[in-house]
């Protein structure tokens, strides 16, 4: 297979883009697409102070590397230690080495200190799925920590696969509140206590980040979260990958469809007013329920009159 640009031997094929790249042009294409996504969606402003949530995995480290390269002086890193034995201590070492090498300001928070107990402790006492507790507290501490670091944006390493999975998960679980908050710049509320999250890698597949990481010879983690098997996301990931194998572009199309939908949804102005008759919320002066009730009573009255 030849590189779509220079016709040299390709090292990666991206079926969803109908392209293949040699090493050099893959790196160029990868970085160009991430930069274009950041600029198109105005994810970073020149006055922004960005805190990158870093786990030590390929996505968060790639994002940290690129944002620090493009926006020097505006980027810091923040790691949340959930307290997962035989896992997180290894990835934290990778992060600490990485930020030292690239001279990036770094802070670490832990569940134990910030919440009062580790994820391992939660899982011993509560019966729910570990990821459901982990996600809640991780977002909580990321937001709190980023705010303390005076951040204006939190960058998270969600890639195209993650985003397609999240869309499907929210549909499967009827999570409509979470559903409308997604997108390249997530969160629909402007509030000084809430730091909005950006997703620079949202249009890049997980496979590409892995290839970028390999070619760049970045230190990759070989540790897998012991709770991953319990995650609903794990099943959705497998389902989407099985489908993508024979239907290239499925994951990208899920995200594109979401974006088209949400664009129209967010443009719609919903003015809530209250019904003049019953005082319930509605979109017009008199609510539909009151209009139907009025019609019903009027017909009843007329019928009565006819009979009389």
């Amino acid at each position: 297979m030849k590189c779509s640009i220079c016709k040299e031997k390709a090292v990666i094929e991206l079926n969803y883009l109908k392209k293949a790249f040699c090493k050099e042009h893959f790196i160029d294409s990868f970085e160009e697409r991430v930069k274009k996504h950041v600029e198109k969606n105005k994810l970073v402003d020149k006055n922004d102070k960005i805190v990158v949530g870093v786990s030590g995995g390929k996505d968060s480290l790639t994002m940290l590397y690129l944002l620090n390269k493009w926006y020097p002086g505006q980027v810091s890193a923040l790691t949340v230690d959930e307290g997962i034995k035989n896992y997180r201590e290894h990835t934290i070492k990778i992060v600490e080495k990485f930020v030292k090498e690239w001279g990036i300001n770094y802070k670490k928070l832990s569940f134990k200190e910030g919440i009062g107990f580790s994820l391992d402790e939660i899982c011993k006492k509560l019966e729910g799925i570990p990821c459901s507790y982990c996600g809640v507290f991780r977002r909580y501490l990321l937001n709190k920590g980023a705010r303390e670091m005076k951040a204006t944006k939190i960058a998270i390493g969600h890639n195209l696969d993650d985003e397609a999975q999240s869309i499907m998960m929210n549909l499967f679980q009827h999570g409509l509140q979470r559903f409308v908050r997604m997108g390249p710049l997530s969160g629909v509320v402007d509030n000084e206590k809430f730091i909005r999250r950006i997703k620079p890698l949202r249009e890049i597949t997980e496979k590409e980040t892995r290839a970028y990481f390999f070619i760049k010879k970045f230190p990759h983690d070989i540790w897998e979260c012991p709770y991953m098997q319990f995650a609903f996301r794990h099943n959705i990931r497998k389902m989407l990958n099985d489908y993508e194998k024979d239907n290239s572009g499925t994951k990208a199309n899920i995200v594109k469809s979401y974006d088209s939908f949400i664009k129209k949804f967010k443009k719609t102005k919903y003015n809530i007013v209250f019904c003049e008759k019953c005082k319930e919320p509605t979109s017009s002066n008199i609510c539909r329920a009151c209009i139907i009730k009025e019609e019903f009573y009027e017909r009843t009255r007329n019928k009565g009159k006819t009979k009389n």
């Binding site: 030590g56 390929k58 990821c131 983690d221 897998e224």
Partner: peptide, 8 residues
């Protein structure tokens, strides 16, 4: 074989 999925 390089696993694409990593972390959790």
């Amino acid at each position: 074989l390089l696993s694409i999925v990593s972390g959790g």
